[in-house]
Nucleic acid binder design. Structure first.
Lengths: 224, 224
DNA sequence: TATTTTTGTTACTTTCTGGTAACTTTAATT
DNA sequence: AATTAAAGTTACCAGAAAGTAACAAAAATA
């Protein structure tokens, strides 16, 4: 009995849990080593199983990659949702959304952002993900535009602003190590506070999150 | 005679030019499709040659990847140099350095950032690149600290700030398309002005670069 | 306890791609 | 023009990794 079975719910549920575990682990490895650089043997090893076992839960590697991206987009949509709902000003909506997005992403159960290599996904599945990603960016841009209108964000090109934010957020997966001194929430709060300060019509004169003062952000020597 | 020979200098120079062309093209493909996702046949095809021809100029794929990273780090070092030399305040040094870095990177002859996949590089060469990258980040952090001391940058965690900047900068390679309405310099100026505004002790009340006002940043539908 | 179903393994095939060897073409030199 | 060296090509080899088939172990059911 491999180590992925913790609790013991009924059969179908068990299957679902295992599939989710595979996806999470695969996402981690894919986003670190790239889709082509990661082997299914790697994924299987990490789960204490052999490769053919995976094929009971996933059609093939392509399907697995697709599932990873879907998971990631689900997180993104959820984050946008909460931002749009909870924030009062446009700027606040953006902040809440991005903070949720990031902390979910790098948190314990999150699917670390998959930096999509061109041609890794193909066919209908590729189109599906590209469409979802476009929709995500468009919605986020909408929040920025809202902020420009309500005066919380200074006049700027929303596309550029969104790209800037997404860049600094996605890059976190390259340096953040969960086993360091800072929790996923610490890092998320601090990074978003800093990054969104560039958009603010009236930027604060000091930064609040404690991580800004305390010195060492846990960084990872070795590959970025 | 393949299409990479434009001018006709002497023999050794010719060789060098071809090697550089290979590195540039490889960097482009590596950073789009990932090191493992890119084949040497792809690189060769783009240059109008067959794979074995490459081996006259490069020892092997690993060596080629290493060369790409060295090129990228050269650009980084040069950018830091000019920033440190030309800027008066710490904030200005950071701005100049990052703008130069980015525009060189995405410009015509630049080597687009290689987002290093873990384990893509190995052995001594990996160590070499990691060391150079660490040195680069440390130096950049130094400029930020300078800014904090001279009051141009508000008190913050320099590591976090640098990671934020590098993220938004490196991400540009995911969305910028050179054949759009905006030049590499346009994008670089605008993005850095925006991103570094988050660090500024006294952020400007409006953005200067024209791209901030004009609407559509050329973005690329399809893979990010 | 015997039977059946589920889950996973070992052993294999196939494809793709990095790398090499032997040959051909092009161009410089005498 | 003949000779020699450089630059590329075609044809191949070897290894790695995706995916499959046939079997074994475990667990549920009877």
């Amino acid at each position: 009995m491999p180590r992925w079975a913790n609790a013991v719910p009924n059969r179908a549920e068990q299957q679902d849990l295992k599939r989710k575990a595979i996806i999470r682990e695969a996402a981690r490895i894919f986003s670190r080593r790239g889709c082509h650089g990661a082997t299914l043997d790697d994924v299987a090893d990490r789960l204490g199983v052999t490769k053919p076992a995976l094929y009971r839960y996933v059609r093939n590697k392509h399907d697995l990659l697709f599932a990873c991206h879907e998971e990631a987009m689900d997180i993104g949509d959820k984050a946008l949702e909460s931002g749009a709902a909870q924030g009062t000003t446009g700027l606040q909506k953006v902040r809440i959304a991005m903070t949720a997005y990031l902390s979910e992403m790098i948190g314990e159960l999150g699917v670390p952002v998959l930096i999509l290599e061109e041609n890794a996904l193909q066919g209908v599945e590729a189109e599906t993900i590209y469409a979802r990603r476009d929709a995500f960016e468009t919605r986020l841009r909408g929040l920025v535009e809202l902020g420009v209108q309500d005066g919380s964000i200074l006049p700027l090109n929303p596309k550029l602003a969104v790209f800037m934010l997404l860049g600094s957020v996605h890059w976190v997966t390259k340096w953040y190590k969960p086993d360091g001194a800072w929790s996923a929430d610490d890092v998320s709060d601090a990074l978003i506070e800093l990054a969104t300060r560039s958009l603010a019509a009236n930027p604060a004169h000091e930064l609040s999150a404690s991580i800004h003062i305390a010195a060492p952000v846990p960084l990872k020597p070795g590959p970025n």
